[in-house]
C-alpha cells in the first residue's frame, strides 16, 4: 500500500467510523451534553455570584471572589479536574459512592465559574451609573435595582462571550476522562480514543472530533447572531405603534393639591 492511502485509512476508515458511531450517538454524545450542560448551568450560577461579590462594596466579598478567580483561571484545567476529581474522591465516596461523574461536573463548573464570573462582572460594570440612579429614584433598594435593572442589562451585553465559554466547556468536558469513567459514562472523546487504541486507527477519534465540531460550530454562529442583534438592535417585534406627534399632550389627573 502506498503511504498516501495508508494515511487515508488511518483517519478516514469508514468502517471503523461506522463501528464507533452507535456508541458515540447513544453513549458519548449524551454524556458530553450532560457534562457540558450541567457544568454550564452550575458554572453560570456560581459565576453570577462571583460577579456580584466582585463588585460588592464589602471587601470581605470582593477579596475571596478575586482570589477564587485568579486561582481557577490560572490553573490548567486538567490539573484542576484531577485535583478535585481525585482529591475529593474520598469525600464523594461517602456522599454518593464511587461515581467520578459528579466531581467531574463540579470541577468543570468551578473552572467555568471563574471565567463566566469575569464575563458577567465586566458586563454589569459596563451598565451606566444613571441606570442605577434611575431605579433608586423610583424607590428600589440597591439589591432590587441590581437584580431587576442592572444585572439583566449587564448579562445581556456579554452573552456572546458567555456562549464562547460554553464552547470551551464542551471541549473541556473531554478532560473528565482522567477520572476513570466506567463504560456507560464515557463521553465522545473517550469513546473515540478507546476505539482508536484497540484498532490502531484514528478514524474513530476523528469521528469524535466531528461530533465536537457539530456542537461547537453552530454555537459560534449563535455568538455572531447575538452579537449582530446587540449591535443593530432587535428587529421591531411590536407591530408599529400608531404615530403620535410630539407636542401638546394633554395631562389631566395630577394629584389633588392646592389649585393656584
Amino acid at each position: 500500500m502506498d503511504p498516501l492511502s495508508t494515511l487515508w485509512e488511518t483517519f478516514f476508515d469508514v468502517d471503523a467510523m461506522r463501528e464507533a458511531l452507535p456508541e458515540m450517538l447513544t453513549v458519548g454524545l449524551p454524556n458530553t451534553l450532560i457534562l457540558a450542560v450541567s457544568a454550564a448551568l452550575l458554572g453560570s450560577v456560581l459565576g453570577l455570584l462571583l460577579a456580584v461579590a466582585g463588585i460588592s462594596r464589602s471587601r470581605w466579598l470582593r477579596w475571596p471572589a478575586r482570589v477564587y478567580t485568579d486561582v481557577f483561571r490560572g490553573l490548567p484545567a486538567a490539573a484542576t479536574i484531577l485535583l478535585i476529581g481525585v482529591g475529593l474522591a474520598p469525600l464523594g465516596m461517602q456522599v454518593w459512592g464511587p461515581d467520578p461523574y459528579p466531581l467531574g461536573i463540579l470541577a468543570l463548573s468551578l473552572i467555568a465559574a471563574a471565567y463566566i464570573g469575569e464575563i458577567f462582572r465586566s458586563g454589569i460594570q459596563s451598565v451606566e451609573a444613571a441606570q442605577l440612579e434611575g431605579a433608586r429614584a423610583l424607590g428600589f433598594s440597591w439589591s432590587d435595582a441590581m437584580r431587576l435593572v442592572i444585572i439583566p442589562q449587564g448579562v445581556r451585553r456579554v452573552l456572546p462571550a458567555w456562549v464562547n465559554q460554553l464552547i470551551a466547556l464542551i471541549k473541556d468536558s473531554s478532560l473528565v476522562y482522567f477520572l476513570g469513567l466506567v463504560a456507560s459514562q464515557r463521553e465522545l472523546f473517550r469513546i473515540g480514543q478507546d476505539y482508536a487504541a484497540t484498532t490502531g486507527n484514528e478514524s474513530a477519534l476523528l469521528l469524535a472530533g466531528l461530533f465536537y465540531l457539530a456542537l461547537t460550530v453552530p454555537l459560534t454562529h449563535v455568538v455572531n447572531w447575538i452579537d449582530g442583534r446587540l449591535r443593530h438592535g432587535r428587529p421591531a417585534t411590536a407591530p408599529a405603534d400608531e404615530d403620535e406627534d410630539d407636542t401638546d399632550p394633554a395631562l389631566a389627573g395630577a394629584p389633588e393639591g392646592d389649585r393656584r
Binding site: 411590536a238 405603534d241 404615530d243 401638546d248 399632550p249
Partner: peptide
C-alpha cells in the same frame, strides 16, 4: 396622560 398610549409596547 402624556400622550403616549400607543407606545406601550415599544
Amino acid at each position: 396622560l402624556v400622550g403616549l398610549a400607543g407606545k406601550a409596547n415599544s
